[in-house]
Nucleic acid binder design. Structure first.
Lengths: 345, 345
DNA sequence: TAGAGTTGTGGGAGCGGTCCCATAAAAAAC
DNA sequence: GTTTTTTATGGGACCGCTCCCACAACTCTA
């Protein structure tokens, strides 16, 4: 069928024979073990190099019981409508840290159809990954519990919904972030502060919403249900949400993600209103495009790259036993003031 | 170090013992081999289910010499400035098709620092993946040649720069697409048609530029070097490019990607000019956000999801011997008329 | 009813590594 | 100069699976 002669791979015995030593010695060279004569080592390395020999990973992991592979599980349809850069950046952060530590990365994405079961069994079946990172798992997704039950090692990105005491996770301080946003708007004299929430079945969505309410209460501002619209973290959701919100004439809106904020800005522009003059906007995430918005977006910064990095670092630590579970990290957020909410007087 | 007792995994012998058959029979059940008594099969399946047994992938691939893993290689820094949804969608297309065919997906991303060597050796060393998909490889990236030399199976996304006769690839008809764009602008009466090119060390960048020139020549329009600006496929590049272009007063611009077109629109807006009245714009890609632009973007559609799908399908076919190399696919593009270039009279 | 074919099952070898243990040679200690 | 320790190396067992071959029991054919 195939014209290419599959160059029969050499194995460790071949290398041993070619360099006149035993398999054990070759293995020692490969694994940087001590007690190998320098001359011998060089000889073996030369043969390895000449023949482009690479140890067979399957054989190696069969005996070591490790694969040096981390899995990323994204139970979240990468939105077709306006692809969310959040995940691209997160994946980047994870792979970078993984590669630095000599791990490769395996990817499991949610599909439209396999809403749960299929993907779960894929993830569970393939015992290929030593450990997993679960990206923003929704409330109804029970994979974390299953993994816990099976005794597998994993770190969640975003706080868990269940068994929070025992789970490993890295999260931003979403409540505090939302509070910062609302407090900033209040400080600028805004009083009718609305919100477009994120997906409430995600921890980040719920927590930012809670933070919003807490801030209003703390500031003794009325919580007007008309000024609360449920969004879904998409641009389209932000657009739709803002259109509904505008009817009730807010003078400021805390939008739970920059992505949605872009949609919100579009809706405001279309309505012929001005930002920040008529409506002030604060987003969340500080995505790369926040500075490019018109006007540039005031937002709450969280470093997604850093979240990915910390999650990976934690996972590797757990796997290697240098970290004792639970590994739980909260990353502070930061208010970034740009023009979409006007400057303080 | 670790409190969790690592639930000692059962192996095929355990399952055999527990269900009172031999390893061979369990193996037959696992692999849906014929000649297994129905009653026996059920008994074995029950034991497997009760104990959540999963065959060890390392052991299996050691003997079958297959891993059922595909690798994706992205030699392209996922841009921090304005993350390109192209890759997110491509990855989605690939993993979907891979999963449908019972393959898992491994990811290798370019990092800032490992500009070449590091990543290459990662990819080459890990013989874990049965085959690879290379996403938009630049001219100077010699990985395809190395892989070819080593006899490994891979499909390129975007046409190769070398050994084009023997390489497997899936590409859009970029030249024709660019021609469609320019011809459309000419048809609408535009004469000073400029372009912001993509990264010219990518096939797509070069081909779209070639298509632009060919179209002008075919239409007997002058090729004015002042109306040609080299871009890099980023939003920021589009913005910068358009600012330079505006000085020479084009009445239309073919922008080699929607992503750049967003930046171009921003530059035009800032300059106080109007689209399409003063400058008509045609993009390329038909990204999800093209409809959301102000004004909605006329563009050349290519289905990135489909490209990913076809590349994966091809790769799997090559691996399984149902496709004979070279596997070379060209996907037609399609002009999508929206408002950024005005409607035909 | 003997011979040939079919069906269901078990056991051995081997995939390509790692790691423990044995051992020879060299170096250090007394 | 003998004993002890260190250094360098080799060989066997094993990781958990697949696949080939052997073989028993049963069915079919003439």
């Amino acid at each position: 069928m195939n014209d290419v002669t599959p160059k029969s791979e050499l194995n460790i015995r071949d290398i041993a024979r070619l360099s006149g030593v035993s398999r054990s010695t070759v293995s020692r060279v490969l694994n940087h073990a001590p007690n190998v004569n320098e001359e011998t080592r060089q000889r073996v390395l030369k043969v390895i190099d000449q023949h482009n020999y690479r140890p067979n990973v399957a054989a190696r992991s069969l005996v070591t019981q490790r694969s040096n592979v981390l899995g990323i599980y994204i139970p979240y349809l990468v939105d077709e409508l306006f692809t969310d850069p959040y995940f691209a950046v997160l994946i980047q952060g994870i792979t970078r840290c993984a590669n630095e530590n000599n791990y490769d990365v395996m990817l499991w994405l949610q599909e439209q159809d396999n809403v749960g079961e299929h993907l779960h069994s894929r993830v569970m079946d393939s015992r290929m990954a030593d450990g997993l990172i679960l990206a923003s798992t929704p409330k109804y997704d029970l994979l974390p519990l299953t993994l816990l039950e099976r005794g597998r090692t994993f770190v969640m990105n975003g706080r868990p919904w269940h068994q929070i005491e025992t789970m490993n996770y890295v999260d931003s301080t979403n409540r505090q972030g939302a509070q910062q946003a609302v407090e900033h708007l209040a400080r600028l004299g805004r009083r009718r502060i609305g919100t477009i929430t994120g997906r409430l079945e995600l921890g980040s969505g719920t927590d930012r919403f809670i933070g919003y309410r807490q801030a209003l209460q703390r500031l003794n501002l009325e919580v007007d249900e008309n000024l609360i619209v449920e969004g879904d973290f998409t641009e389209a959701g932000g657009y739709a949400g803002m259109r509904r919100l505008l009817v009730h004439k807010p003078d400021a809106v805390f939008v739970a993600s920059d992505h949605m904020a872009m949609g919100a800005l579009r809706a405001i522009r279309e309505a012929g209103m001005r930002v920040p003059d008529d409506v002030a906007i604060v987003g969340f995430d500080d995505m790369p495009f926040a500075t490019l918005a018109t006007p540039p977006l005031t937002t709450i910064r969280q470093s997604v790259l850093r979240i990915g990095h910390l999650a990976t670092e934690g996972l590797i630590g757990l796997l290697q036993g240098t970290i004792t579970p639970p590994y739980q990290v909260s990353l502070p957020t930061q208010l970034v003031i740009r023009e979409s909410c006007g400057f303080p007087a």
